[in-house]
């Protein structure tokens, strides 16, 4: 089998790219895309740990896979709410640039 750190390094790289996207982008939708990338990186970690560190048959612990499935579900809910918020902001402010949405700044 491939050494486990290969997967961990890939997930770390993906997470850091997503973090950069979430911190550095101007467009609210692009920030959301960065967050989705980070969630994906975490899922790779969950599945890799499930595959490499698991009790053998016949007990087959599937916690890692089921956690990943829950994370995917939550990501879907989060994307739906976030995009609805973006559309609502666009309606009232006519922009999705997070630097121009400063109603609560003083």
């Amino acid at each position: 089998m491939i050494p486990l750190p290969f997967y961990l390094l890939l997930a770390a790289a993906l997470f850091c790219i997503g973090l950069f996207g979430a911190l550095a982008r101007r467009n609210a939708i692009a920030i959301l895309m960065g967050i989705e990338l980070m969630l994906n990186a975490v899922n790779i970690n969950l599945i890799a740990f499930w595959r490499y560190i698991q009790p053998a048959a016949p007990t087959w612990d599937l916690a890692g896979q089921i956690f990943a499935l829950f994370v995917i579900t939550l990501a879907a809910a989060e994307a739906a709410i976030a995009l609805a918020l973006v559309i609502a902001i666009y309606r009232s402010r006519d922009t999705v640039n997070v630097e121009e949405v400063d109603l609560m700044k003083w």
Binding site: I17, L19, F20, L23, A24, R26, N27, E99
Partner: peptide, 14 residues
């Protein structure tokens, strides 16, 4: 540009 003014700091942090 698509990135804000703190993109260098963000890249460094990442």
């Amino acid at each position: 540009s698509g990135h804000n003014s703190q993109w260098l700091a963000a890249a460094l942090l990442a």
